[in-house]
């Protein structure tokens, strides 16, 4: 336990010293502010465009903006934030292989699974803080300008995307134990997400796939029922745990 805590602390210090945490926090706040800002600016932009569109014969009806517009923006933008987050952490294990900084600790008796677990914990914690910060900011603005009441299951839908993020972190850890360079790790992680997306094009399979969670915003408008997502949530959690276990097993064999 002591070794685990010490290693986690080392990861934490690294997170702060490299400026990664600060950058991510600022970025996720930016994303959080942008969602309601875009929603708020839409009617104004439409007005601006209405004049030029009139010349082409199109008339634009007055657009009504409410909290839903802002939440739609949130679910549209969060994948981009997720990608940036993963890019930032792409080298979490591979950078250590290349510098050889882990060899000392491992030969001194640090258990390998603790390395994986500590890194996983730190990444998950960072993701959690950043994600809910972004969510909280959007929520606050929406509450201030409009009513959040028109969207149902807000927290639940947001939790779905959060779980998807944790799954991707587990996948990335697994890939980090398999591959040697961070670009390979990122490509493989992206590949897995892509596979899940492509298989999701089959209507029958869609329900059981992690990427289905990205569509959880359907819950807000009431277009999708909550039950529809439970399968995907459990599969995602299961795959995440499996990914982590596989990462430990692969890493032990190295």
């Amino acid at each position: 336990m002591r070794a685990f805590l010490a290693f986690t602390k080392k990861e934490w210090v690294e997170l702060i010293r490299t400026g990664r945490l600060a950058i991510l926090l600022v970025l996720f706040s930016l994303f959080g502010i942008m969602n309601p800002a875009v929603a708020k600016l839409t009617p104004w932009m439409m007005e601006m465009m209405a004049d030029s569109l009139k010349e082409t014969g199109l008339t634009v009806a007055a657009v009504k903006v409410d909290a839903m517009t802002s939440w739609t923006q949130f679910y549209k933008n969060i994948p981009i934030a997720m990608v940036i987050f993963l890019l930032m952490f792409g080298g979490i294990l591979t950078a250590e292989y290349q510098k050889g900084t882990l060899i000392n600790m491992l030969t001194k008796g640090l258990a390998r699974w603790k390395v994986i677990l500590a890194k996983g914990c730190i990444m998950t914690a960072t993701w959690t803080v950043c994600y809910w910060l972004c969510y909280g900011i959007t929520y606050g603005y929406n509450w201030y300008f409009w009513e959040n009441g028109i969207a149902s299951h807000l927290g639940l839908a947001a939790a779905c995307v959060w779980i998807l993020g944790i799954w991707l972190i587990a996948v990335m850890l697994l890939m980090s134990t398999v591959f040697q360079t961070s670009s390979a790790v990122l490509a493989a992680t992206g590949g897995i997400a892509l596979v899940s997306y492509v298989v999701g094009l089959i209507p029958k399979a869609r329900k059981f796939l992690p990427t289905h969670l990205l569509a959880a915003s359907g819950m807000l408008s009431g277009a999708g029922s909550v039950e529809e997502y439970w399968c995907a949530v459990w599969v995602t959690i299961g795959l995440g745990v499996l990914g982590l276990l596989a990462a430990v097993i692969v890493y032990n064999k190295k």
Partner: peptide, 21 residues
């Protein structure tokens, strides 16, 4: 669209962007 409506966005956006910069 008056300036007062946009201020709650502009100020934090400017702060965040300049912090990043």
């Amino acid at each position: 669209m008056n300036i007062k409506e946009v201020l709650p966005f502009i100020i934090p956006l400017i702060i965040a962007e300049f912090t990043l910069l």
